[in-house]
C-alpha cells in the first residue's frame, strides 16, 4: 500500500509554548486515521499543518509524494509562493469544527466556489457535480438555502460536500461533531462513515471513541505535543499499552 501522508519530525511552537514536540506519522492511501487526545494535546494543530494552515517550525510533511508548503534543494526548505500552496490545498479537503460555511452565499454557491474559482471548472459542470454531492450528504433539497437557515448537522454536511467538490486525495476533519447538539452528531458521522467505506483517505480528529472503534484503521493517541501510542483500534482502545492512554480513555468512555 502506498503512503498518502508522511509526517516527519514536525515541531511547532506558539510563542514560548511548544505544541508539537516532534511528530512522526504515516497514513496509508485509503485508510482512516483517527486522532484522539485531551484538549491542548496538539491534535488540531497537527491537522492544520498538513494543509499548511499552520507553518511548521521544523520537520517536513508530504502529501501524495509532494512536500507541503516547501521546495527542497539540498539541505534547505524554500517556502513556496502562495499560489503554489493554494494549488496544493485544492487536493486536500478540510472540514472545520465550526463549519465555516460562507453565510452570504447559498449552499450551492458554497459548494461550487472552489471548483469554479480555484480549479477553473466550467460553472455548469460544477453545479451538476454539486447537486450530486448534496444528494450524497442527504441535502438535495437545500441547494438554494443559506447556511444560517440550516441546523448545525446540515451545515456540517454541506461543509463536507464543499470539501468533496475539489475531489481531494485526502480529507482532514477537525473535530467535525464537537460544535453539534448531541442528536445531530449521528447524521454527520453517517456521512463520514460512508466516505470511509468508499475508500477515502482521511484523518479525523475527534472525541467520538465509538466512531473511532468502528471506522478507524489506525487510532493515534496524542498528549502534550507527542504521539503517545498508535495502532489498530482493537489495541489502542481495548488494550492500551500506555498509562496516559488508559487514563484518557477511562475519562471519556
Amino acid at each position: 500500500m502506498t503512503v498518502m501522508v508522511d509526517i516527519r519530525s514536525v515541531h511547532k511552537s506558539f510563542g514560548s509554548l511548544e505544541v508539537l514536540k516532534g511528530i512522526d506519522l504515516s497514513v496509508r492511501t485509503g485508510e482512516v486515521t483517527v486522532v484522539l487526545g485531551p484538549s491542548g494535546s496538539g491534535k488540531s494543530t497537527l491537522l492544520r499543518t498538513i494543509n499548511h494552515l499552520e507553518k511548521v517550525d521544523r520537520g517536513a510533511i508530504s502529501v501524495d509524494g509532494a512536500l507541503i508548503g516547501y521546495r527542497r534543494s539540498g539541505d534547505k526548505l524554500h517556502e513556496l509562493p502562495e499560489r503554489e500552496v493554494l494549488r496544493q490545498r485544492t487536493r486536500i479537503g478540510f472540514v472545520f469544527q465550526n463549519f465555516n460555511l460562507f453565510p452570504h452565499l447559498t449552499v450551492l454557491d458554497n459548494v461550487i466556489e472552489a471548483p469554479v474559482s480555484a480549479l477553473k471548472r466550467p460553472r455548469a459542470e460544477a453545479v451538476e457535480s454539486a447537486h450530486r454531492l448534496l444528494k450524497r450528504v442527504g441535502l438535495a433539497d437545500k441547494a438554494d438555502a443559506y447556511p444560517r437557515q440550516l441546523s448545525g448537522g446540515q451545515q456540517q454536511r454541506v461543509a463536507i460536500a464543499r470539501a468533496l467538490a475539489l475531489e481531494p486525495k485526502l480529507l482532514l476533519f477537525d473535530e467535525p461533531t464537537s460544535a453539534l447538539d448531541p442528536e445531530l452528531v449521528g447524521e454527520v458521522l453517517d456521512v463520514i462513515r460512508d466516505l470511509a467505506h468508499r475508500g477515502t483517505t482521511m484523518i479525523v480528529v475527534t472525541h467520538e471513541i465509538g466512531f473511532a472503534r468502528e471506522v478507524a484503521d489506525t487510532v493515534v493517541f496524542m498528549d502534550d505535543g507527542r504521539i503517545v501510542e498508535q495502532g489498530p483500534p482493537g489495541e489502542v482502545l481495548e488494550r492500551p499499552r500506555e498509562e496516559r492512554t488508559r487514563l484518557f480513555l477511562s475519562k471519556v468512555l
Binding site: 499560489r83 465550526n98 465555516n100 460555511l101 460562507f102 452570504h104 480555484a118 475539489l166
Partner: peptide, 24 residues
Amino acid sequence: GQIEAAQALGLSRWRRWWRIVLPQ
C-alpha cells in the same frame, strides 16, 4: 474562520478579498 476556510479551499488572495471578505 471565514478566511481560513477560503484558504483551505485554495481561493486566491484576490478572490478571498472580493468574494468572501468584502461582501461580509
